[in-house]
Design a protein around this nucleic acid. Structure first.
Length: 349
DNA sequence: AGCATCCGTTTGACCTCTTA
DNA sequence: TAAGAGGTCAAACGGATGCT
């Protein structure tokens, strides 16, 4: 199960903040500061932590909590009285921050482990077309969409009864198509048609996206949205590749004090699936230099080919540590100089 | 109740490094 | 130098939850 790992990293991060002498002591019993964790979850956590496959995750997350406790921009050595665990529940409305822990009702913490993904959105939501436009592929590249569909339909003729036009696909058609197309390669014809679709979707989407943010101010706001910079600062404690990741994500207010937005460009890219690249250029007043942030958006099927309308998935390609508005968590004594993270010895059991 | 959206994992292609 | 091991990244998939 995937959620076991998520639970381990989130709870271990919380435990690390409480100032225990050792991880072994931390898991002896459920600390009273850690609320919204029931006995069953705690039991599962404690036994999972002892498994070799979870030790590295536990150690890294626990360490992240410790660093947050000591950090100058974090708790500055004051162990929290209250750590609320979000658990498996989702906030209403769009573009919410993925907050996993709330510390002393104030500090918001997102635990992210090896994820380059910034956000997922409905394409019409992200690219700011008005209202619901239905299937995004059909909206931006109807010809290529239909061409791919026709190629697929010809190929599996006889096995499934399908309408001639992709726009007429009903729910059950989509479900059958998904099964028929799953776990098999596109044929040469279909692959070519899919490639055409990918290129056209990238090109048209990029152009619509550009038009939707006509002013500089709108493009700046879009950049903040892409970077998940919002009204409240929050922390990201986790890992990227094999390194630990400890950031303070600041607010537009902080951002403008140090940086000046230059521009945000987006363009269709040539890739295996529809892809739009984006790059922001920013003036850093503190460092007196121009920097840039790169990323891309994939517009792709989410539950299998033709199974449902595609979604837009935003990726960050610039390392987190070089993103304007993301502050590296500063560690004061006694832990500075040993920021190593996951490869820490664990005196468990 | 069913669908849209969100978040994250799994898969597999491809590249690099190691070993015989 | 060929085969295998290991690592990385893009692409594809799916569970879960809120909305209508």
């Amino acid at each position: 199960m995937a959620s076991v790992r998520t639970e381990i990293t989130e709870l271990a991060t919380g435990l690390g903040m409480l100032g225990f002498d050792s991880p072994a002591e931390a898991i002896r019993r459920l600390p009273k500061q850690l609320v919204d964790v029931d006995e069953a979850v705690w039991k599962k956590f404690v036994s999972a932590v002892d498994e070799p496959s979870h030790r590295v995750d536990f150690a890294g997350a626990f360490r992240n909590g410790q660093v947050f406790l000591e950090a100058k921009d974090g708790l500055r050595g004051r162990p929290p009285l209250l750590i609320e665990w979000k658990g498996g529940h989702r906030s209403p409305s769009h573009d919410q921050l993925p907050i996993d822990l709330r510390v002393d009702r104030v500090y918001l913490v997102s635990c992210k482990y090896s994820s380059k993904i910034l956000l997922n959105a409905a394409p019409s939501n992200l690219f700011a077309a008005k209202g619901d436009v239905g299937d995004w592929y059909d909206f931006v590249a109807p010809k290529q969409h239909q061409a791919l569909y026709s190629a697929v339909r010809t190929e599996i003729a006889g096995r499934i009864e399908l309408p001639p036009f992709v726009g007429d696909l009903a729910k059950h058609h989509r479900a059958e198509l998904k099964v028929a197309l799953a776990s098999r390669e596109w044929s040469a014809e279909c692959a070519a048609a899919y490639q055409d679709l990918a290129v056209e979707v990238g090109r048209i989407t990029a152009s619509k996206w550009r038009k939707s943010v006509a002013t500089k101010r709108q493009r700046e706001a879009l950049l903040w949205r892409l970077l998940r910079i919002g009204p409240a600062p929050y922390y990201v404690l986790g890992s990227a590749k094999d390194r630990s990741l400890r950031l303070l994500v600041t607010t537009p207010w902080d951002w403008r004090r140090r940086f000046e937005f230059r521009d945000l460009e987006m363009w269709g890219e040539d890739a295996g699936q529809p892809k739009i690249g984006w790059r922001a250029t920013v003036r850093d007043h503190e460092a007196c230099e121009e920097t840039s942030v790169d990323g891309h958006v994939e517009v792709r099927w989410s539950h299998g080919r033709f199974a449902q309308a595609p979604e837009a998935k935003v990726y960050l390609d610039t390392p987190h540590t070089q993103v304007p508005g993301y502050l590296h968590l500063d560690v004061s004594e006694p832990w500075s100089g040993q920021m190593s993270g996951p490869e820490i010895q664990l005196p468990l059991s």
